[in-house]
Computed example of a mutant assay.
Amino acid sequence: MTTYVLIHGAGHGGWCYQRVARRLAAEGHTVYSPTLTGLGDRSHLVSPDIDLDTHITEVANLLFHEDLTDVVLVGHSYGGTVVRGAADRAIGRVGKLVFLDAPDGRSQIEAFPVLLKEREKGRIIDGVELVLFPSEELVRFFGITDPEDIEWALPRLTPHPWKTLEQPLELHNEPALKAIPQYRIVSSASLGLGVHDGELLAASRAEGRFWEIDSGHDLMISEPDAVTGLLTEIAAAAVEVR
């Protein structure tokens, strides 16, 4: 059995993995889907101090305090940057890294220039610059189109602290990080937007570590069976020495 740690993207929370987590747990796996501070069920803790390092440290601390090893660490969207940083700080605890529609390795505004337009619509509340205020338009931008899914997701989305999106990712153990097997699952919707690193995708394809799911960006909500199936396949895959 496998231990999965599932990290959500901007404006979301651990709730967005509910369908995938239940399916993995039903197969006997151990699943953690924490909510990053300032978001979801922890939105009441939002503060001006929250940045990318805050979220990276939270995930690294989870791996340490729960004494987790050989973890399949999954990051969706913004969460891809978080899990890359957490794996860098928790070398020896992560067995495989999975980037779920996540352009890893860059600050989010580098990967998603559209966020600069979102910043224009943002607001400063209690000293915190927040963006991605929930709306039906935003939900559809995330690729959620089923009316029941929209009704479920919309009230659970929360504004996101801007500071986490513009802070560059700093790595301290890059050689060891590169040695961790890395896998990429992307949505068909995101491939045409130019947000993914073409060289990384090409390398992942050549290594058999790339999959495309015909869905929108929030594919863990819209395609939980496909995502669950690929995560179990990745966990079972033999690791080839590169």
Rank of each mutant, 00 (worst) to 15 (best):
M1K: 09
M1S: 15
T3W: 12
H8V: 06
H8Q: 10
G9L: 05
G13V: 02
W15I: 02
C16F: 03
C16Q: 09
Q18E: 15
R19W: 14
R22M: 15
A25F: 10
E27I: 09
E27R: 15
H29L: 13
V31H: 03
P34Y: 03
T35R: 06
T35I: 11
T35M: 08
T37K: 14
G40D: 01
G40N: 03
D41L: 12
R42E: 05
S43K: 13
V46H: 06
T54W: 07
H55D: 12
T57M: 03
F64H: 13
L68Q: 01
L68S: 01
T69L: 09
T69Q: 14
V71F: 06
L73N: 04
R84Q: 15
G85D: 01
G85Q: 02
A87S: 07
D88L: 14
D88T: 06
G92K: 03
G95R: 09
V98R: 06
D101N: 07
G105Y: 06
S107F: 04
Q108L: 14
I109G: 05
I109P: 03
A111Q: 07
L116P: 07
I125N: 09
I125V: 15
E129T: 02
E129L: 03
E129W: 01
L130A: 00
L130P: 00
E136T: 05
E136C: 08
E137G: 14
L138A: 03
F142K: 01
G143E: 02
D149F: 07
E151T: 13
L157R: 00
W162K: 00
E166N: 09
E166F: 05
P168V: 03
H172R: 14
E174I: 12
E174H: 09
L177M: 09
A179N: 09
Y183G: 11
R184Q: 12
S187M: 05
S188G: 15
S188A: 15
S190R: 07
D197C: 07
G198S: 14
L201V: 10
A206G: 04
A206D: 12
G208H: 12
G208P: 06
G208A: 14
I213Y: 01
D214M: 11
S215G: 06
S215M: 06
G216N: 12
H217C: 09
I221H: 02
V227M: 08
G229K: 04
A238D: 13
A238K: 15
E240V: 15
V241C: 09
R242D: 14
